[in-house]
Structure formats: C-alpha cells, structure tokens
Design a protein around this nucleic acid. Sequence first.
DNA 1: ATTATCTATAGATCTATAGATAATGC
DNA 2: ATTATCTATAGATCTATAGATAATGC
Lengths: 200, 200
Amino acid sequence: MGHSQEDKRGNHERIVSIAARQFRERGIDGASIADLMKEAGLTHGGFYKHFASRDELVLEAMQHAFDSSARQQGSGAPTGKLTFASLVEAYLSPRHRDDPGTGCAVAALASDVGRAGRDVRSAYTGQVRRSIDALRHLSGADDDPDGRRASVVALCVMAGALGLARAVDDDALSREVLESASQFLLGQSDEDENEDAPRA
Amino acid sequence: MGHSQEDKRGNHERIVSIAARQFRERGIDGASIADLMKEAGLTHGGFYKHFASRDELVLEAMQHAFDSSARQQGSGAPTGKLTFASLVEAYLSPRHRDDPGTGCAVAALASDVGRAGRDVRSAYTGQVRRSIDALRHLSGADDDPDGRRASVVALCVMAGALGLARAVDDDALSREVLESASQFLLGQSDEDENEDAPRA
DNA sequence: ATTATCTATAGATCTATAGATAATGC
DNA sequence: ATTATCTATAGATCTATAGATAATGC
C-alpha cells in the first residue's frame, strides 16, 4: 500500500479511468463505488478522500471519456490522417458496437444523461456541440450553409445507429443497422469493403 | 381493499401500465417495485402474487409500451389518417421529447436494453423490426429496393435525435436537433410550421 | 506531524419471502 | 375454503462517514 502524493495522483487517475469505462458499460447508475475501487486495487472507504461525492466522479469520468475520444480522433486513422469516411467506418463498426467501455460517450450515456443532474447535462451538452462542429469540419462543410444541419443529422444517425445496434439481439439486424447508417453517411460509395468473403 | 378476481385483473393491468411509464421515465433499473406499487395504491409485498419476478414485469411492461405505441399510431393523427409526415412531426416534437413516459419505448429504452437479459432484448428486437416495416410502409417505399435501407436510417435518425434532444441541457440546441432531423426526414419541405410567431 | 488508505459501520434502498388479515365465492 | 392484499422482515446492495493504521516528508 503506497502512500505518497504521487501514488495518490496515480490512484485518482486510475479510478477516473476505470469509472469512465464502467459508466459507459454499465450505465451511470449501474456502476458502484465499491466495484470501481476494487478494480483499482483499493478499498471503497478511501473513495471520499479522492472525490467529494459520487456525482463529482461522474463529472470527472465523463470529461475523461470525452477527452480520450478527442485524443483518439486527434491521433487519426492508422495511416495518420482522419477523414470523415474513416471516422464513420470506425464509429459504425462491430468493434465499436461491442466495446462501449472505450467508445463514444455521447452515444453510450445519452439516456442516462437525460435523467442526470445539471452539471452532468451541461458537460454533455458541450461535447455534443464539439461533436457537431468536428463532424462539420471533417465533412468539409464549413462553408456549406446546409452543412450545420447535415452535421446534426449525421450525429443523430451515428448515435442512433450505435444505440440500436447494441440493443438488438440479432447480429444480422445489428449489422444491417450499422451498414445502412454507414452507407447513408458515406453516400452509398463503400459497397462491401468489410465483408469477410468477397462475392463471386 | 378489494379482493375479487376482477379487482386483481384491474390491479395487474394498472401495475403494468404504471411500470411501462416509469421504466421509460426513470430507466429499467431506475424504477423500484415499492414505488410502482405505491403509485398503484398497493403495498410492495403483494407484487409477487402478480409477477414471478421483477424481470417478468419488465417484459410485460415493455410489451405494454410497444402495444400502446402501435395503438396510438393505428388511431392516426387527429384527422384520422396517419402519414409519414405526421408521424415524424409528432415523434420529433418538443411534446414527445418532454414526455418519455408515454412515448416511444424503442428510443427511451435503447441503452437499458443493451445491458438487459435475453428475453428483454428479444422482445425489443421484435419491436425494432416492426418499426422498420411500419416506416417503410408509411413512406410508401414498399416497392423501392432502397426503401428498406432508408427506413432503417429513418429509425436511427428518429431515435438518435430524440435521445440527444432529451439529454442536451439547452432548449435551442435541443430544438435544433429535432428540427434538423425533421427537415431531413421530410425533405426540407416543412419550413417553419411550428414557429410560435410567423416571421415578417 | 501529516496524510493516503483501510476497517468497520450507519442509514437508506431494493428484491424477495413468510405469515397474517380480510375479503370473495362455492 | 380459497385467495388477494397487507405487515414484517431477511438478505443484499449502495453511498457516505468515523476512526484506526501505516506510510510519507518535513
């Protein structure tokens, strides 16, 4: 058991990081402090020396999730450059669908935030604004007068498709949702790039 | 305190109806049996003579919510005929946004269902299929080969926009989300029908 | 001496069950 | 006699706090 101030900073960061994942996976109310602390290798009693309340952790964890989304996108695609197409493809991939813990917090927490308190909703709203702006910029519609509206619609499609694909209990339907949304956003131009077996 | 079998049927139905509303408002885990029974005018102990388990209620309540959505749409718009446009306008209205308890359960429960058990996910999946079919039929795209995909996208836009509009803590942005989605789905043809004051 | 963490526990829920009570319905 | 509901409670969480323990850091 370490006790230095440096250890404390590390522990604090680890708790926030674990919370950011568990809130996305289990819902804001579904993750418990005891579980979080256990996974961080600590006991639940120590929690309140790191955070004044559970709500304070929720805010920090949400911010952490938003920041790491921005960082992921900042680092771009494997090749180094992030395009609208590469973002949409990654966002609407089965990989993202199956890993909500490290994925988009806007989609994962939408309905939880709708029932949450003032501060949480305010922080979430900021991220929605940033997401709309990022989509508009990426799609090269900064000058298009209809670009703003198209970006709002794109965010709705992306978050809606991800939510439905995660809820649905049939892999074929779930993939159809992801692919329909993807084809719509990419202008029907990506055909069957992700098929396991090329046809004919 | 009534004890007849007819009373029991009435109580059962009332519990399910209240649950259908509370699950949509508070989330599947957010509503408690004691609260439900209290609102039904009963004590919590009697719950298990109506349902074998909480999960059984969740299933019945979800089915009830799906049925009442279908009934609302079956009865159509005020004039009696339901069109794609009237459905979209009602769905993406501030009224629907502000009343999740009587609204679309597909949108309200998506993220809860993603974390739920087999039976709940299976029932939800059925309703997603029916919703896609209904949208395709209403939009008159039964014969259009791309109609299926368009209907899937429409459902994503509707559920996604509703979820984001409910989460966001700024009425202007929330309305922009609803209106952008609505204008997209209605082909930019509805201008400012819902404005409080006509311009100029 | 200070402080980061741990142990123990209070107080509030929540699901579920057992047994009592008071109606129904043969 | 049967049964729909109520009272009471067991057992499992969960948030939050108080006080003990064992390090750090002057």
